[in-house]
Design a protein around this nucleic acid. Structure first.
Lengths: 243, 243
DNA sequence: ATTGCGCTTTGACCCAGATCAAAATGTATG
DNA sequence: CATACATTTTGATCTGGGTCAAAGCGCAAT
């Protein structure tokens, strides 16, 4: 099925995005205020403090939210994958720097009318609440990673998270281990984890040396034994994230 | 005005909590499923993984949410002050350890009926969404602190946050600087900031020695020059948190 | 093929904060 | 008011990850 921007029925994130619970007439209302925007890998979507007159769903690709300190230190505070929501209803100015980590397509809604529609459409607010609560849980797991884990555990945790997301969004798990395209550069990984890119590189090399991950080229990652990787995250064995 | 548990009109968090936007009849519905619980400083409210059949608003006092790793490392991931919401509608088991940091009073709602009422009362869902978005912003500011700030900047940031909260909840700023009761032990501060308690103590001593904060006893904190403290946080001078 | 450029790897060294240990403050209890 | 226990402070030492520096890739453009 190819994606026809005119028809939400063909949209790849139709049943996971903020519009997931909408009925046909509700989709029509949204359709009237929506437009698509695309960005190439590396491009900036918006800068913190800029006026932001839209909110959006990530349709394809990956975007990062990050905060910068004036001396240049940077911390990624959000990683948006397909179906994730960008922006905050009621907020006029962007709170974070948003960058297209890979090629990116957004389904944008003009903010003011979106807020209006939201008032009349409980389904949207309900879904947004659910998504926001999920993001808050993810942020809290991330805080444990940032505050208490070693560099090695941080890398293992990130790979685990990416592998799981891949598995949930995609295809099937090949028997010979999980395998996916790393959407992040070493620097982005460092910004995600509160490390330097050198430390990220060293730990990746260590995992490669130990056979816990296999690297083809710089970006293709294969995890032959997912449990072995999990054991390095420092988390409970029983995959019991957010119990 | 003294607080009469029978009458939401006298409730100190009436216009900030999850029920802030409720009309009289909506409050009545909530009233039918609510009950109060109190905890002494240090007591556990609930353990991660426990069955949690209520959600709640903090009425008075302070509670912490934290995550523990099996080897004992602990990271605080939420600090709930009066009017903050505890629990997640639709979630059966607690995701975090919740501890009463100071003496604590909760206004609890039985979870199942609360979820029911929420479906019929957009005002509650709307307010909860707003509060959750605020918490997500706070979590993201916190992630910058955990990932990129020095110990000194972390302490300054925490004191700034507490002082600001105090200022917003309370009275007036005395001309001779802000002053408040530190609700956290050195260990809790360490858990909040991803440090050890020794490092927290050393940095507090340094600020005291430099006259940036004044300590009476172990808990009473006075900040003679708020801008001087702000300058130590590493944030933009123009107080422009979450722009 | 060669140059250039962005990204990654690797090495050598250093330091902020962790760890280990002890003393100094409270502050409850009998 | 002495004892016991929790909390905090301070000191001495160690180390994981940061910093600085220099090679190694790929890959695109000429």
């Amino acid at each position: 099925m190819t994606f026809d921007p005119k028809d939400c029925g063909t949209c790849p994130i139709r049943h996971r995005a903020v519009c997931a619970r909408c009925e046909a007439d509700e989709l029509d209302a949204l359709d009237g205020i929506k437009f698509y925007r695309s960005f190439e890998a590396g491009q900036s979507v918006i800068w913190s403090g800029d006026n932001m007159d839209f909110v959006a769903s990530v349709v394809t690709g990956v975007a990062s939210l990050s905060q910068a300190m004036e001396d240049g230190r940077t911390q990624m505070v959000g990683l948006l994958l397909p179906s994730d929501f960008l922006g905050r209803p009621g907020r006029e100015f962007a709170a974070y720097d948003v960058v297209a980590v890979s090629n990116l397509t957004l389904c944008c809604f003009r903010r003011k009318p979106f807020e209006q529609i939201m008032l009349q459409t409980p389904h949207i607010g309900q879904r947004l609440l659910e998504m926001t609560l999920d993001e808050l849980d993810a942020a809290r797991e991330w805080m444990l990673i940032l505050g208490r884990k070693t560099a090695r555990e941080k890398i293992a945790s990130l790979l685990t998270i990416l592998a799981r997301r891949e598995a949930s969004l995609a295809l099937q798990t090949a028997e010979n281990g999980t395998s996916f395209e790393l959407p992040l550069t070493r620097e982005s990984m460092a910004d995600y984890l509160g490390l330097t890119l050198e430390t990220v590189s060293r730990q990746m090399s260590a995992f490669k040396r130990e056979g816990i991950v296999l690297l083809e080229g710089k970006r293709k990652v294969t995890i032959p034994d997912f449990d072995a990787l999990m054991a390095e995250t420092g988390d409970d064995a029983d995959g019991g994230m957010v119990a």
